[in-house]
C-alpha cells in the first residue's frame, strides 16, 4: 500500500483491476473458443495476411504503386508483372497491395468512429430517455429512411474528394445502426436489478453507464461492428467505382475495378484481381464476425 492513498481509493483501484482482469479473462476465453471455429480462424488468417502485406506493401510490392511506364500498358499477367499491368502501365499487384491499406483503413476507421459515436449516443439516449432520446430516435428513423449509398454520394459531393472526407461520408449514416443497438441494449439492461442496486448504492450515472451497462451491451456492438467492416469496404469500392472516392494516386480496389470495367473487353485481369481480393477480404472479415457472433451473442440476428 502506498502512503497517502486512502483506503477508499485503494479499494477502487483494486476493484478496477479486478473488473479489467475479468474482462480480459472474458476476452481471452472468447479467443480460445473462437480458435475452435475453423472457419473463423481461416478468416482471421486471411485478414492477417492481407493486413500484413498492406502494412509492408512498400517493402514487398515489386514496384511503387504510382510508377507508370506507359510503354508497358496492358502487359498480361506473368513475366515482368505477376498480375499484369493496367491501362497506364502500373503494376496491378503493387496497386492491389497498396490498395489494401485504403480498404482496411476505411473498414477499421469508419466502423470505429461509428461504433463509438453510435454507442455513446445510444447509451445516453437509452439511459436518460426524455427529449434527448426522442430527438435522437426520430433523427435515426429519418436517416434510416435514406438509402445509404445515395446519402454517401451526396455527402461526397458536399465534402469533395479525399480519404477523410470519404470516412466522414460513410460515418454520416454508419452510426445509426449502432445507436439503435446500444439504445435497445440499455433499455433492456436498465430494467434489471443490478442497475437498480447500483443506483441505490449512490453510484453516479457515469459509473453505472460505463462500468455496469456498457460491458453487458458491448458484445452485439462488437459483432455487428466486425460484420459492418466488410460492408464499409464494399461501400468504399462502390463510391470509388462511381468515381467519387479517393484521389487516383492512392490506388483503391474500387477504382481499380472501375478502371478494369472500362477495358473489360481487352484486359480481363484489370478488374478480376482486385475484385477477387476484395471478395476474399470481405468474406474473411465476415467469417470472423460470424465466429464472434456464435461465441458472444448466439441469439443476435446479424444478416
Amino acid at each position: 500500500m502506498i502512503k497517502g492513498v486512502s483506503a477508499r481509493t485503494h479499494m477502487r483501484r483494486k476493484l478496477f483491476f479486478l473488473r479489467l482482469s475479468l474482462w480480459a479473462e472474458g476476452v481471452s476465453a472468447t479467443i480460445r473458443r473462437l480458435r475452435r471455429n475453423k472457419a473463423a480462424m481461416l478468416g482471421a488468417l486471411v485478414v492477417s495476411i492481407i493486413t500484413l502485406s498492406a502494412v509492408f506493401a512498400h517493402v514487398i510490392a515489386p514496384y511503387p504503386p504510382d510508377e507508370m511506364s506507359l510503354a508497358d500498358r496492358f502487359s498480361p499477367p506473368g513475366g515482368k508483372y505477376i498480375l499484369g499491368a493496367d491501362h497506364l502501365g502500373h503494376d496491378v499487384l503493387s496497386r492491389i497491395l497498396h490498395g489494401a491499406r485504403v480498404s482496411i483503413l476505411v473498414g477499421i476507421i469508419t466502423v470505429t468512429i461509428s461504433v463509438i459515436a453510435g454507442g455513446v449516443l445510444g447509451i445516453l439516449a437509452g439511459y436518460y430517455g426524455g427529449w434527448f432520446d426522442a430527438l435522437m430516435s426520430r433523427l435515426t428513423e429519418v436517416l434510416l429512411a435514406f438509402p445509404y449509398l445515395i446519402f454517401a454520394i451526396g455527402a461526397m459531393a458536399m465534402l469533395g474528394p479525399g480519404f477523410w472526407n470519404l470516412v466522414w461520408a460513410l460515418c454520416f449514416k454508419g452510426w445509426v445502426e449502432f445507436f439503435r443497438l446500444a439504445r435497445a441494449g440499455v433499455l433492456s439492461e436498465k430494467a434489471k436489478e443490478y442497475v437498480e442496486a447500483a443506483k441505490v448504492l449512490g453510484r453516479s450515472d457515469l459509473e453505472i453507464m460505463g462500468s455496469e451497462i456498457l460491458p453487458n451491451i458491448v458484445n452485439p456492438l462488437m459483432v455487428v461492428g466486425t460484420l459492418r467492416m466488410g460492408t464499409m469496404m464494399v461501400m468504399e469500392a462502390s463510391l470509388s467505382f462511381l468515381g467519387i472516392g479517393i484521389p487516383p494516386r492512392i490506388p483503391t480496389w474500387g477504382s481499380m475495378i472501375q478502371d478494369g470495367y472500362r477495358f473489360i473487353l481487352n484486359a480481363w485481369w484489370l478488374s478480376t484481381f482486385p475484385g477477387l481480393i476484395l471478395v476474399a477480404l470481405v468474406l474473411s472479415v465476415n467469417l470472423v464476425g460470424e465466429g464472434l457472433r456464435e461465441v458472444l451473442d448466439p441469439d443476435l440476428q446479424t444478416f
Binding site: A237, I264, V279, V282
Partner: peptide, 22 residues
Amino acid sequence: SFLGISMPAFWLGIVLILIFAV
C-alpha cells in the same frame, strides 16, 4: 452463402456480363 453475402453486387454484375453476355 458466405460468398454470396461478401460479394459486391456490382462486381458480380461485371463478371456475369463478361461471361454470359460478352
